[in-house]
């Protein structure tokens, strides 16, 4: 019987080694260890064995079973791993095929710049406010210290609906409307962004409609230095840490002193290049200290408070930011343009 056990063990071990698949191993398991298997068959003959030999033989039979089990398990694991490897290798794909298409839309570059500007000023504690695009003569001109027959009306030729109602030529009417709402509360820190309309000739940098960014700050002790500081922050946030702001004396009826506002060219850092047409500076728009008469129109006492305001063209900032050379691209709505943003 010992010999028989040894023979079965040796035979099983050889068979396990020779079996090529995990499934076939299962059959081997039945053949040797199953209820009708070889090992069971041998143990059935245990009755014929003398009683004193039984414990030793029983032990040997168990050892034999364990050895076959262990070898089966090892061999199964090895074969399964090999089979999995083979299957995975067979699942090879062409990695250079394009990824699955997913929709991607775009927000208009103007919208993106407007959101960027708003986020920046909101962070500085400004409220974004809104006003009508179709305005009264009063808010667009009179309240801004531009009475009828003022020569400034010539430089801002307007589109009229009626003699007293027109398409606003600037976002500044929102200044007065906001002051009327807030007065006498302090401080006033607002921006507004919206369309304005002027009867100007259209060229690569001027349209008869454009977006303006208007800002207004009113408080006690506001100085022209504060204007420079606020605009410096804005320019740096939009164009880079190194740009500088330059104010040049100018004239607007609703501010005094008034200034044209330039930022140093972010491309050449003021040295002069194609983008800034060699000047080293890029014009942003007008700014200045709020004229006392405008403060009065808005319900504030110019003896007590002062303020500054600015109005910049958003198209120009967008063009500068993305290097767009012609304003008209912004409004062509050509999807080949829009999809670039």
């Amino acid at each position: 019987m010992r010999e028989e056990l040894k023979r079965v063990k040796d035979e099983a071990m050889r068979a396990i080694e020779a079996t090529p698949t995990a499934a076939a191993l299962q059959e081997l398991r039945v053949k040797y260890l199953g209820k009708k298997g070889a090992l069971t068959g041998i143990l059935r003959g245990m009755g014929a064995v003398p009683a004193d030999e039984r414990p030793a033989l029983g032990q040997l039979a168990n050892d034999t079973r364990d050895a076959i089990e262990a070898r089966l398990a090892d061999r199964t694991a090895a074969l399964e791993t090999a089979e999995l490897d083979a299957r995975l290798r067979a699942e090879k794909v062409d990695l250079t095929l394009p990824g699955t298409w997913l929709p991607r839309g775009t927000e208009h570059p103007m919208s993106q710049v407007i959101e960027e500007i708003k986020a920046m000023f909101v962070g500085l504690g400004f409220q974004v406010v809104d006003g009508p695009e179709v305005e009264t003569d009063y808010y667009n001109f009179e309240a801004l210290n531009i009475p009828k027959d003022h020569p400034a009306r010539d430089t801002q030729d307007s589109f009229f609906i009626t003699p007293e109602i027109l398409l606003r030529t600037q976002t500044s009417p929102v200044q007065v409307r906001t002051m009327e709402k807030l007065a006498p509360r302090l401080p006033v820190r607002i921006i507004t962004i919206g369309k304005v309309y002027r009867r100007d000739e259209v060229d690569p940098t001027h349209g008869s409609v454009f977006y303006q960014l208007e800002g207004l700050v009113i408080d006690r002790d506001i100085t022209m230095g504060d204007l420079k500081g606020t605009l410096t922050i804005m320019a740096r946030s939009l164009f880079g840490e190194n740009v500088r702001i330059r104010l040049r004396p100018s004239y607007f009826p609703f501010t005094e002193p008034s200034a044209e506002t330039d930022t140093s060219c972010p491309v050449c850092d003021g040295a002069g290049c194609r983008v800034c047409k060699g000047s080293g500076w890029i014009e942003l728009g007008g700014s200045g200290m709020v004229h006392p008469r405008v403060l009065v129109a808005g319900g504030y006492d110019p003896e007590v408070v002062s303020g500054f305001a600015w109005g910049f063209g958003v198209e120009r900032m967008t063009m500068r930011k993305y290097g767009i050379e012609d304003l008209r691209h912004l409004y062509s709505n050509d999807v080949r343009f829009l999809r670039q943003f």
């Binding site: 909101v122 504690g125 809104d130 302090l186 820190r189 506001i222 100085t223 420079k228 922050i233």
Partner: peptide
């Protein structure tokens, strides 16, 4: 104008925001 010292507005701290519709 270049000689004017650059400063920032002082005064009360305000929180910014935009209209709900925006």
């Amino acid at each position: 104008y270049d000689e004017i010292t650059t400063t920032l507005p002082q005064g009360a701290i305000t929180h910014g925001g935009q209209p709900v519709l925006e």
